[in-house]
């Protein structure tokens, strides 16, 4: 018999996780689909389940002394979309995730934990160098979202750890975001790209590019980004074809029910070109 745990304090939750391997349920919008068996049947859980939505300590959206945004594991997209603390570019992304009903249930931390190659919130999190905080009875550790997600549904979480919050550093850039899907609403991404840049005195001070749905995880190449820092905008624009070629080996999409490898590869490059043309 599997057991269900509904802790109301973080301490209690961490103690439970220290003693047993559990599925962790927040809003349920991924897990309830993955474990669904049919109408009128209980979801098919093969191990214990720990529910986090009653841990009030994990319910907050705040900025800390260093100006970082901190979001608790309980906080849902609908709350983030209504918060004045959340950067507009995140809200742009959230607006195109699933549907209003789902956004009233789904949490940001849940989207990270689910580690889907098509997870849309992972693009701005990666671009902003956001970190997750993992808590256990032994203490806390912080990991970059970029490193935390290791592959398709593979994350750097130990069985005794709970993702308790996301830390998003302040990031003052100009942004570009395009999600390509089949519809306006409820579409799972075929290809997406987010770019960020800052120009000072005609030179590139900061350049960041992330792709979604074209590999096992969000693609970001720091080496290429750094190569163009300090270059002039004119030089960057003259080298758009070179840059697209440099990313060629990173763009490794698959063919699945949503799209084909060829289409994704073509669109990813087109989005990159479109973004680079926006840099001015």
């Amino acid at each position: 018999m599997i057991q269900h745990f509904v802790p109301t304090t973080l301490k209690e939750a961490l103690k439970i996780l220290d003693e047993r391997d559990c599925y962790i349920m927040a809003g349920g919008t991924d897990l309830m689909v993955q474990k669904h068996r049919g109408s009128g049947l209980l979801p098919n859980f093969d191990k214990d389940v720990l529910y986090v939505m009653n841990i009030k300590e994990l319910d907050y959206i705040k900025t800390d002394a260093e100006g970082n945004l901190r979001i608790g594991a309980m906080n849902r997209y609908c709350e983030l979309m209504n918060s004045s603390l959340v950067p507009d570019i995140f809200k742009t992304v959230f607006k195109e995730i699933a549907s209003p009903n789902i956004r009233n249930m789904a949490t940001l931390v849940g989207n990270i934990a689910n580690a889907s190659p098509a997870g849309d919130s992972l693009l701005p999190l990666n671009l902003f160098n956001a970190r997750v905080v993992l808590s256990s009875v032994k203490g806390n550790r912080e990991v970059l979202v970029e490193d935390f997600i290791q592959g398709v549904r593979k994350i750097d979480r130990q069985k005794n750890e709970l993702i308790t919050e996301v830390i998003i550093p302040n990031c003052d850039l100009n942004f570009y975001y395009r999600k390509v899907g089949s519809r306006k609403a409820e579409s799972i991404t075929k290809v997406s790209l987010m770019g960020g840049y800052k120009i000072e005195g005609g030179k590139i001070k900061d350049l960041r590019i992330v792709f979604g749905s074209i590999s096992v995880k969000v693609v970001r190449n720091h080496f290429i980004e750094e190569k163009y820092q300090g270059k002039s905008v004119n030089e960057l624009r003259a080298r758009i074809d070179d840059i697209i070629n440099e990313y060629d080996h990173e763009i490794k999409p698959i063919t699945d029910q949503r799209s084909t490898m060829e289409y994704r590869k073509k669109v990813a490059k087109n989005l990159l070109r479109d973004f680079l043309k926006h840099v001015k």
Binding site: H4, M25, M32, V33, H36, M53, S99, N104, M105
Partner: peptide, 27 residues
């Protein structure tokens, strides 16, 4: 649909619409 796509199972929880087919009872 039973998987959160169609909204036929919509109910209001604290006045917010949610898909009850994905909503665990404990929440």
């Amino acid at each position: 649909c039973g998987e959160g796509e169609c909204g036929a199972c919509t109910v209001l929880i604290n006045e917010e619409p949610v898909n009850s087919c994905l909503y665990p009872a404990i929440n």
